[in-house]
């Protein structure tokens, strides 16, 4: 904006407010992380200062990592998240293509049916989901979690992706048809590559709640072999609640992977939101 329309106090005020809120947003994270690198005494004596050479201590991390199970939990979370994500994107894109590309009887109804899950949380069906999993012998398996998360992620994925697929040019698809491509090839070869950016957006939206979920791991797969990192961290921290070093280190370790993923995908996420996918 030009000099004539901008005012200095307003700009300074905007920065001050945003900086203040950024500090509020980051403060707890920063406090946790810096204290995780300090000795027990320093944690209590000077909680707000960063670790110095005297107070630097990795005891919390060695304690957590000696627990050993964390690698298994991490692996479980990774398997569950990646598998659910893959299924959500594949099935979601296929359904979105069918809904946006073809006119058939019940099209609108099917769209509404699938959109129902955006508003009604899957958790309300937990009682029956558990019974279903017990009946099919899937309790305490990662498959149970993958199935639930796929169902949970599909409604929003279908909704967002069909919005994007409507924007893919009809001429392109018709050119494919004239060239003799089957509908499947048109979907996989022409449409999917074009909506890849929106797939990334959907991926971020789907991934975060799955990785962070506590409810279903707690209910469907609480066994030692199938614990996710979120559930593992919850239990570990509950158990070691008086061991501050271990708790802070565990929290920092739990923050790290999500933070890295977020920083990698944040541009994608913001582009996805601002391109109007979820308005």
């Amino acid at each position: 904006m030009s000099r004539a329309t901008a005012s200095l106090p307003r700009t300074v005020g905007a920065h001050a407010a945003l900086l203040a809120y950024t500090a509020i947003a980051l403060f707890p994270v920063v406090v946790i992380v810096i204290n995780s690198f300090k000795s027990r005494n320093a944690i209590f004596r000077t909680p707000l200062s960063p670790p110095t050479s005297e107070t630097f201590d990795l005891i919390g991390y060695t304690m957590v990592l000696n627990q050993g199970d964390f690698f298994l939990y991490f692996q479980n979370s990774l398997i569950v998240t990646v598998a659910s994500l893959f299924l959500v994107l594949l099935f979601g894109a296929m359904a979105a293509f069918a809904l946006s590309e073809y006119r058939f009887r019940g099209n609108t109804l099917m769209g509404l049916y699938l959109a129902l899950g955006i508003m009604i949380p899957i958790r309300l069906g937990t009682v029956a989901i558990l019974q279903l999993m017990v009946a099919s012998g899937l309790v305490n398996t990662l498959t149970a979690l993958v199935l639930v998360y796929t169902a949970q992620g599909l409604p929003l994925a279908v909704f967002i992706l069909s919005e994007f697929m409507k924007q893919v040019s009809d001429d392109l698809k018709n050119a494919g048809r004239i060239d003799g491509l089957s509908e499947y090839r048109i979907f996989f070869r022409l449409v999917l590559p074009l909506v890849r950016p929106s797939m990334a957006t959907v991926a971020v939206f789907t991934m975060i709640p799955i990785w962070n979920d506590l409810w279903f791991p707690l209910i469907l797969a609480p066994s030692e072999a199938t614990k996710t990192i979120t559930l593992g961290a919850q239990l570990f921290i509950g158990q070691y609640v008086t061991n501050w070093n271990a708790v802070l280190a565990a929290l920092s370790l739990a923050i790290l992977p999500v933070l890295v993923l977020y920083l990698i995908f944040s541009r994608q996420l913001i582009r996805g939101i601002t391109s109007g996918a979820v308005k």
Partner: peptide
């Protein structure tokens, strides 16, 4: 092909979400 495109999503969604919801 329409059925093929829709089937996986509709099946998983119905079996794991809608039926349990009404089951509950």
């Amino acid at each position: 092909h329409i059925a093929v495109f829709l089937a996986p999503a509709v099946l998983v969604y119905t079996a794991v979400m809608i039926i349990p919801l009404f089951g509950t």
